[in-house]
Design a binder for these strands. Structure first.
Length: 481
RNA sequence: AGUGGUGUACGCAAAUGGUUCAAGCGGCUUGGUUUUCACCCAAGUGAUUGCGGGUUCAAUCCCCGUCGCCACUCCCA
């Protein structure tokens, strides 16, 4: 049997990390079995679906390297198929029109809640007489369409992650709605559970891999598979990604969409690596750094965890740094340039390329997130230094002004500037002023960078010199001191 | 309230009846390196495997109970 899996996001928001992780598992499974990974956009909720979200989802998946083999297929373009399926259910008397109003349903749930009962639809319109139906229609009520769920029914399946699963029909909340309200005789907007089953059947999906929050839906959907088709896919319900409080990670938890992670400076490789690790482990669990292709080779649901996993920024950061640090400057610089540009730094990415690469080589091994390059290198792009409080305190110490003045003197007599010349200049000042080298270095750092900490001083100096701002800064510092 | 699921250190997790330390990574602490910071390197830290019982020569692992936590119970997906 060929493996055919699908990712079925609804475009009601940007690509969420939970959806992306589901995508990762689907992709890994498909690739492992040389199957197909299909992308389907579930936009049946017209009110909440937006094209820009669809675009964001497509972009995010592409960025992560989760290429799909078919699609995107839009449910909004398949309404006819859903209507046909609904009509079939109606014709077979497996579904019926329910005229209960939302208000009545609310009241029902309220009273059930008050009696400490589980909320459920009481199937009150399952066997309406023609007269009753006519009366409701005369009242102007618009019916939804519900599929009958046998309370005594038993639904079983074997979940690839959780093993044997069993549900009672009576625990499914009563007959389920498959189409929104619309004038009797017509068929309203099809709902999720129905559309999913029709599509998965049409697309010959072999395995449904999704988050465990869908487990109850699976029981309902199996009923529809039985009514509408003759095959039922295999299911795998993956654990959820949790926030620090242990709840399902949602938009309320702040940064949760893939484009946000991208913007913050995580690499696609690192993020995909981390998402895979959240709930799955390679056969050699000590080997935590891997590319999607490597994971696909050995992916299996036997090694997918059952419990939800809390999202951990520290670990993601660490993984990201592991991808960034060994990256050659010639490659890294390409990734850094957009961040520098976004920060508003002025530079010519072509003409100044060597300088930018040199800078990248300097800060690259210290980066955690790509965006860190902004704060780390700001002082190199700025025209003038802004002195930190610490730096000013240092500059005002005894002997600093004199040392800097001496340094300025030495430098201005220099014919050509180089790393060696810089070193000898410092030594000369130390000798002339009779101060410790540490003092000169610290003063120089404060002068050139405006701060007491930062990347390697001599390298920074060389970069600054190429921009022709080093002497100016030393003068600026002398004024402060 | 019901139904389903789940519980190994601060977080992710490995080992699933059988050695000596219940792996590893992150975190945190300390040291080294850098005359700074970060990175990096090293060491250290921390778990009566939720709890109680049972089966067994032997239980993280199997069984029962219990507690906690999570998800679901929309004319959302």
């Amino acid at each position: 049997m060929t493996v055919r899996v699908r990712l079925a996001p609804s475009p009601t928001g940007n690509l969420h990390i939970g959806t992306a992780r589901t995508a990762v598992f689907n992709w890994l499974f498909a690739r492992h079995h040389q199957g197909q990974f299909i992308l389907r956009i579930e936009d049946t909720d017209e009110a909440r679906s937006k094209p820009e979200y669809t675009q964001n989802i497509l972009d995010g998946l592409s960025w992560l390297g989760l290429n799909w083999d078919e699609g995107p297929i839009f449910q909004s373009k398949r309404i006819d198929q859903y209507h046909q399926a609904i009509q079939k259910l109606l014709d077979q008397d497996l579904a019926y029109r329910c005229y209960t109003t939302p208000e009545e349903l609310d009241a029902l749930r309220e009273s059930q809640k008050a009696r400490k009962e589980a909320p459920r639809y009481d199937n009150r319109h399952r066997n309406l007489s023609q007269e009753q139906e006519a009366a409701f229609i005369a009242e102007g009520r618009q019916p939804v369409i519900r599929v009958k769920i046998d309370d005594d029914g038993q639904i079983n399946w074997t979940d690839l992650v959780r093993g044997p699963m069993a549900w009672k029909g009576s625990d499914l909340g009563g007959d389920m709605v498959i189409a929104r309200a619309k004038a009797s005789g017509e068929i309203g907007q099809p709902l999720y559970n129905l559309a999913v089953v029709v599509d998965d059947l049409d697309m010959q999906i072999s395995h449904v891999i999704r988050g465990e929050d869908h487990i109850a839906n699976t029981a309902k959907q199996i009923l529809l598979y039985e009514a509408l088709g003759d095959t039922i896919p295999t299911f795998a319900h993956t654990p959820l990604i949790l926030n620090p409080e242990g709840r399902k990670l949602s938009k309320r938890d702040g940064v949760t969409s893939i484009s946000d992670f991208q913007e913050m400076g995580f690499t696609a490789e690192a993020l995909a690596n981390y998402m895979t690790l959240l709930g799955w482990s390679p056969t050699d669990a000590t080997q935590e750094l891997f590319l999607l292709d490597n994971a696909a080779e050995q992916f299996s649901f036997e090694r997918v965890n059952k419990a939800g996993a809390k999202f951990d920024w520290d670990k993601l950061d660490w993984i990201n740094s592991q991808y960034l640090h060994p990256m050659p400057a010639t490659e890294l610089v390409e990734r850094l340039i957009p961040y520098w540009q976004a920060a508003g730094f002025s530079f010519d990415p072509v003409a100044e390329r060597p300088w930018l690469e040199q800078l990248t080589a300097l800060i690259g091994p210290s980066l955690t997130r790509l965006k860190d390059c902004v704060d780390m290198s700001q002082f190199l792009f700025d025209d003038a230094v802004e002195f930190s409080e610490d730096a000013i305190t240092h500059l005002q110490q005894d002997g600093v002004a004199a040392a800097l003045a001496s340094l300025k003197q030495v430098l201005s007599s220099l014919e050509t500037f180089s790393a060696e010349a810089a070193q000898t200049s410092i030594k000369q000042v130390v000798k002339e002023q009779g101060v410790k080298k540490g003092l000169v270095m610290k003063s120089l750092r404060a002068s050139l960078t405006g701060s007491l900490k930062g990347p390697d001083l001599m390298e920074s100096w060389l970069l600054l010199h190429q921009r022709g701002v080093d002497l100016k800064r030393i003068e600026q510092a002398i004024a402060q001191a």
